[in-house]
């Protein structure tokens, strides 16, 4: 009660002091945009609502966007937000992954980055991902996706940022996170701005940083013991693959596993 009064005296009201009349909000490290696609979004001609409340999908703003135009055609922009409070308003009013149709994707990316390899922020990057059998994980996928989003918007994936080392905070390596639903499995992915070439030398530092993200994902976000092996029928380890290697479709693909 004492704290409440003090906060009021200073005229600072968080959403915890007053859920309807708060006057400060918690800014996110970066603004984020949520995108969605499913077979049901294909060919929909939008908007049916006023332009202001339903921004068009900005496919061609960057050179990468032009290249990705076909890919982005059916991916719908849902909302952009920049505060903790707005994130939860969205979360509490949207469909969780366990109730999405069987070929759907949520893409949560930093504002200005489209969820495509071609975007400048993604083209030299890669992704950590895990594939989970649908039947066994339907009851936990929602929590896994929530925790993945919270680590993304809270900007706690990147160990170098979290360590507080150095005053010139380096650029975050995370560009976005994705959950995909398929008839047989779920997949959750973390996209990074860069990818190690696995060539050694200077690259080792980057590899260490990328591996830190993967370990955090596996142990803190998904909740697995670090030593647990996860691969099995329809399931993969937590593994990293650069987008360039993904394009090679398995040939010479150099995976990192944590």
């Amino acid at each position: 009660q004492e704290v409440d009064m003090q906060a009021q005296a200073e005229n600072i009201r968080t959403v915890f002091n007053d859920p309807t009349n708060f006057n400060v909000k918690h800014p996110l490290y970066s603004p984020w945009t949520l995108w969605f696609d499913s077979p049901a979004t294909k060919g929909r001609n939008l908007p049916q609502t006023p332009m202001t409340s339903f921004p068009q999908t900005p496919v061609a703003q960057t050179p990468g966007g032009v290249a990705a135009q076909g890919w982005m055609e059916d991916i719908k922009r849902v909302i952009t937000f920049d505060s903790v409070e707005e994130f939860w308003g969205l979360y509490n009013n949207i469909v969780p992954p366990s109730q999405l149709p069987q070929k759907a994707n949520y893409y949560l990316f930093k504002e200005g980055i489209i969820p495509a390899w071609e975007d400048d922020a993604n083209k030299n990057g890669g992704k950590w991902s895990i594939q989970l059998p649908r039947d066994k994980n339907r009851s936990v996928v929602d929590k896994m996706w929530l925790y993945t989003m919270l680590a993304a918007i809270g900007e706690t994936f990147d160990p170098l940022l979290t360590s507080g080392e150095g005053s010139d905070s380096p650029q975050s390596l995370i560009t976005g996170v994705i959950v995909s639903t398929r008839p047989q499995f779920y997949r959750i992915s973390i996209w990074t701005r860069t990818a190690p070439t696995l060539a050694g030398g200077d690259d080792d530092k980057l590899r260490e940083r990328i591996e830190g993200i993967g370990r955090h994902f596996k142990t803190q976000v998904l909740g697995y013991p670090e030593s647990q092996r996860l691969a099995g029928a329809l399931a993969t380890e937590v593994e990293f693959l650069s987008h360039k290697d993904s394009e090679k479709k398995g040939k010479q693909a150099k995976k990192i596993v944590v």
């Binding site: 859920p19 049916q48 909302i79 939860w88 308003g89 009013n93």
Partner: peptide, 21 residues
């Protein structure tokens, strides 16, 4: 914040319009 921030954001479009149901 989960139990506190429940109101739908103004900028959230009708979900059925994008096949999100």
């Amino acid at each position: 914040f989960m139990a506190v921030c429940k109101e739908k954001p103004d900028s959230l479009p009708p979900l059925d319009a994008i096949g999100l149901e």
